[in-house]
Design a protein around this nucleic acid. Structure first.
Lengths: 340, 340
DNA sequence: GTGAAAGCGCTAACAT
DNA sequence: ATGTTAGCGCTTTCAC
């Protein structure tokens, strides 16, 4: 039924090991036998059994992609398909396969990761997020398993390879833009506080306020998931304040979308009554009205680079930890207004 | 270093085979030994090596997800992440892993599929598209490999399990809606002609025209990829006609997006000057202005159901071929105008 | 109810 | 340059 290396060997009149060497394109096999063996493979329709191979060499040619615990919710944000595109493209070029986590809750995800690692399912992995005190990251470090993270690690920064943007400065710049435009009441809507990216962007925002001698008000800070619904909720909170903000820095376009929707329902006009700046430059950010002024973080590139790093690391076990900062650029569009 | 079944066996004072049976939760192992073995596994931090297991049982607990050949382009359409979400959710529940194709060209994809099949990488697969004369589908049928397709197979419909919408009637209904609204010059912008879904939707459109005694004009038919750019190109063509259409049936929201953009650039107002109806109900369809009248095909559900079918099939080898039609509903929004 | 041993398909010394 | 052989870690007869 299934054709194995032995069948090929028989047909080509060589030993199985020779066939194996031909597969690996070993240099110490004569061109002649190579040809014969390859011919036999073609004729028999031979395909190597990856499980056997992986078992023998203790590796798979696969990389694991770890989404945040609830992959299902996460995939609602176009950020993830977009990094996936980048990763997939590199994986394809280098003939690696892609294994993606299927989510569940934190604990289940952790189990899935362990199965991938101990079960030899993947040779390395890419974490698509970075949280403070993430058991998964700790585990990977501990196990000395090759991985790279998209985002900045919370601890052991210098020992972990990661691909990130300069979120601090991007946020600073964004906030400055708002200040330049005359805004003095600027709110910040960020992701959950356990995400490092949230902290970085928040820091940038605070620095900008400080430099401009503006008060930092706790009321103006909202944290929630990178979802549309979170944006809506945030607006509800902020606009029930005695003094609602006239501008906001929002950490994700999807959230901004929710913000704009809710603002509309509240009868608050953007950018007339309130200015918005955002992050990610998802393609929808130029579709909606007003088109968003947002930071292009080059999501696709984040994916490509992280995969490249990982694969290098797999090839050369002792590759040092690297840090790659993907440049950002601010796309100025119509969601802010100069009120000077 | 790595802890194997032997280590566990030693620790629990049993034979490796017993450990194996405990893993499989065999009924002929005494509760007592089970406990002992499980304890040993915990203590040692044992995780089964999937490669070894798969090799022994000739299966993986993984399902392959095949995107259209250029996964990279495809992922630009939110349709794919959305089905992926559905598939992933089911996979997670049933403890299957997900293996996604990384694209390339047709030939490379075919090779990837063969590697998955012959290499025992996956137990079954889900095709996320259906084309006429698709070598991959032929191959899977031929090899008698378990798979399900999202969309309607071109041939051997009764022998292949698939999950689809009633695209014919949806399209018919959409076109009728336009006709009811007084439109007589209705164009059709569809996907490439090799996709079955394109044909089905085109048939629906034609039937509607016929019943209303309207001419079918070749000039009014455009075929291209499900991309934004295709929508733009289509508009260029259609609006260089002596008599441009006053309405269009568009087979994908992403295309519709391009159409609307281009229309705007042409100074043609939608829905004032031209009405648009579309397919898929991507979340962006309610974001853009005008909000799209579009067919909700329940993408997520397509994913969930296809995965369910596949897994059933894997469990019961002789499960008959099934056809599952996911109901659609038309979301009426603001992209059409009654010109009666 | 449990153990011994063969074998899944491949690779990698070690020979020659 | 090629063959022989011993595993890789697990499952599964077949014994007992």
């Amino acid at each position: 039924m299934v054709v194995t290396i032995k069948d090929v060997a028989k047909r080509a009149n060589v030993a199985p090991s020779t066939v194996s060497r031909v597969i690996a394109d070993s240099s110490r096999i004569s061109l002649d036998t190579k040809k014969r063996v390859r011919k036999a493979m073609k004729e028999l329709g031979y395909y190597p059994n990856v499980n056997a191979r992986n078992l023998a060499v203790r590796s798979s040619q696969a990389i694991g992609v770890i989404m945040p615990s609830s992959a299902e919710t996460a995939l609602q944000n176009p950020f993830f398909p977009e990094v996936l595109r980048g990763i997939g493209s590199t994986a394809h070029e280098t003939e690696y396969s892609l294994y993606v986590s299927t989510g569940g809750n934190d604990e289940q995800l952790f189990e899935e990761v362990k199965r991938m690692v101990y079960g030899n399912r993947v040779d390395g992995m890419i974490l698509l997020y970075s949280r403070v005190a993430d058991p998964i990251m700790d585990f990977l470090v501990e196990a000395n398993f090759p991985f790279v993270v998209i985002g900045k690690p919370y601890e052991q920064e210098s020992r972990i390879t990661y691909v990130d943007n300069d979120n601090y400065h991007a946020s600073l710049e964004l906030t400055n833009h708002l200040i330049d435009y005359g805004h003095r009441h600027i709110a910040f809507i960020g992701g959950t506080t356990d995400l490092v990216v949230t902290m970085d962007r928040l820091r940038g925002y605070r620095s900008a306020l400080k430099k401009a001698n503006l008060d930092f008000k706790d009321d103006y800070i909202v944290h929630d998931e990178f979802l549309r619904s979170s944006g809506r909720k945030a607006v509800e909170r902020l606009f029930s304040l005695k003094k609602p903000p006239t501008a906001m820095v929002i950490a994700d376009d999807m959230m901004s979308l929710g913000v704009i929707n809710m603002l509309e329902e509240f009868g608050v006009d953007c950018p007339e009554d309130v200015s918005i700046t955002s992050f990610n430059n998802l393609y929808l950010s130029e579709l909606i009205r007003p088109a968003l002024t947002t930071v292009d973080i080059q999501i696709y590139m984040l994916g490509v680079q992280s995969a490249k790093c990982l694969i290098e690391k797999l090839k050369h076990k002792e590759e040092p930890a690297k840090r790659i900062i993907i440049p950002y650029s601010i796309k100025f569009r119509n969601s802010t207004k100069n009120i000077n």
